[in-house]
Design a binder for these strands. Structure first.
Lengths: 345, 345
DNA sequence: CGATCAAATCGAACCGGTTCGACTGCGGGT
DNA sequence: ACCCGCAGTCGAACCGGTTCGATTTGATCG
């Protein structure tokens, strides 16, 4: 069951077996065949721990997983699934690090994975503009990539959605349909305060696009759940009853947004248009189907793994980035702005 | 950075450091303090690989993750999140195994994790009544627990929802509201054929409950996406236009179900009632909010970890099981059966 | 025909922990 | 005064791989 056993049965030394498996030194075809036969018969697999100890590489990647009880978006799920698959394609496994539920957790998940040398590299999601985890890994010289990016992104590897541009595209789409008073439904105040990059970049993109198209835009923070979505609609219509469209980057609140609009008698898309950023499969599952920039989550996961493995292979190569800008898919939730008379005051 | 370095700086032998850390032999308080001081100063963490190699235990659990591109339910996500958290609470990490995307994959994910001794135990979800993975692990004597159970569940450890009883509760709820013709929207034909246990037990529970309450029940398979949901409604109303309620165990299709009912002019809950089994947070996010048995996913993840660690600690203890039967939460999608005249033929 | 070199293989050291057996003092029982 | 046992510590072996240097053999070249 260990390499010595294989060597004995094949009548060679342990090192010969090792070289036959790794190919790092030439082995004669006959010897190689004999070794392979023994391995096949015994269904031998080298111990990952022994291999990691001697080679110094674990063939494992770390991934920080958002804590349970928080709302997972379809986007995040697809990231994780595609990360695992892409990593498996390269012979790597993925180890999950619990995001510190309590802030001052001490033996924080990711930190421990790194200190115990359980992983060769790490993938971080849910990035903040000023992120302690990123600073820590960068300071330690530990290989990592991020899904999302930090404030000063030139020095790190990442793949990100261009939230600024995507929200801009949504605003542009709505403006072209004639909407003149548009709201933004952003992420929660807590996340915004914490510096979540997508929330901040969404706001910037919204403000810029509204200015560019000469529309009146009001931005609203909104918790990640249905009830907060209903509440957000109340606030939006109270602040400006003439609002006829909104852009949402908050997948989790959408059900509440729809419900809130229905409660105020605004039919979608006849009286009110909704556009957003969401996983395509999910946008097609809600009623009405959401006009949205479809997040290519699977591609993002794959790219993240490729970037990380590239970093592991050639640590000195200059950092690469991918800023994705998927097009807005037209579905059933947006339509022409209602004539002013149609809008109840 | 290694244990020898710590030993040298503390002026003791390597074994003494090891015993100080593990507590497996008495160490004088002074020596212990001296060692701890050095460890704290250097921020030393023992190498996981070395520890695993010599101790034979990795302090890692394996989890088979459903492939990307399939639809993840909120339930599954919450399982995973709570598994990671519960495991972290016991000092264990979670390693994801890609479920073999192609069936004859060869070096299948979980199998490799076990053969390479990367994990101490495994958690399996998406269980089939006759599951090759379960058979393989059981034959190999490898510790595992399942979320969901196999056909002959007495010999394994698992935590499961009592789908039979839950679907029965939904039927009972609808019957009490006066519905007499009820449909079941089950999982996809592919999954049913593959022997997914929840799909089979749901069907049994549905048939039994319908017989018990004297209602006419028709069961329908339905793919895991919105379009299939719409299609299912077409089939249900074509098969029996007098149907006034349905029970769904297919979270992913619900959006399509709602849309299909709307397309047929059936308003919820006035003309048609919908009950189901779903993650509570999700059931509250859709419109109308779904009357459903709320899956205690977080609890299930925690229980799975506890069962597995119990198995690792005492391999000979008799298997324990948890069959959960959460109550049906009343929400907005069910109501009294319409008077027969109200139902359009 | 001897020097040179590459292919093929072996033995030993090493990675960084854990654990077992042995050794040293020292206090208690008789 | 002597033996026993235990607290406390050390040295060495071991876990199962990888990798380096050395050795043997056979082919190539001048």
């Amino acid at each position: 069951m260990n390499i010595g056993e294989i060597a004995r049965l094949a009548g060679v030394s342990r090192s010969t077996v090792s070289y036959a498996l790794s190919g790092k030194r030439p082995i004669s075809p006959e010897t190689r065949a004999r070794i392979q036969a023994v391995i096949d018969e015994l269904d031998y697999q080298p111990s990952a721990a022994a291999r990691a100890l001697s080679s110094g590489r674990t063939r494992t990647l770390g991934l920080v997983f958002p804590p349970a009880g928080s709302h997972y978006t379809d986007m995040q799920l697809d990231f994780i699934g595609s990360l695992v698959e892409a990593a498996a394609g390269f012979g790597y496994d993925v180890l999950l690090a619990a995001a510190a539920a309590a802030a001052g957790d001490g033996r924080q998940g990711l930190r421990r994975l790194v200190a115990e040398r359980r992983v060769d590299g790490a993938v971080l999601m849910e990035i903040r503009l000023d992120d302690a985890r990123v600073d820590h890994l960068a300071a330690a010289g530990f290989p990592f990539v991020t899904i999302g990016r930090v404030g000063a992104p030139e020095r790190t590897r990442w793949v990100d959605l261009d939230y600024t541009a995507l929200v801009g595209s949504c605003v542009s789409h709505l403006a072209q349909l004639g909407h003149r008073r548009i709201a933004l439904v952003n992420r929660s105040e807590r996340l915004f305060r914490a510096g979540y990059e997508s929330a901040h970049r969404s706001l910037t993109g919204f403000q810029d696009a509204c200015a560019e198209h000469g529309v009146i835009g009001t931005a609203h923070l909104c918790g990640d759940d249905a009830a907060s979505g209903e509440d957000a609609i109340d606030r939006i219509l109270a602040a400006d009853p003439g609002t006829t469209a909104l852009v949402t980057v908050n997948e989790a609140a959408l059900g509440g947004l729809y419900r809130g609009l229905a409660a105020h008698g605004r039919r979608i898309p006849r009286d009110f248009s909704v556009a957003g950023i969401a996983a395509g499969r999910w946008a097609a599952a809600v009623t009405p189907q959401l006009t949205a920039a479809d997040v290519p989550a699977v591609e993002m996961g794959r790219v993240a793994v490729e970037l990380l493995l590239e970093l592991l292979a050639t640590p000195d190569a200059p950092p690469r980035h991918f800023l994705l800008n998927p097009p807005v898919s037209l579905r059933a939730s947006t339509g022409p702005a209602p004539a002013p008379a149609d809008v109840a005051g």
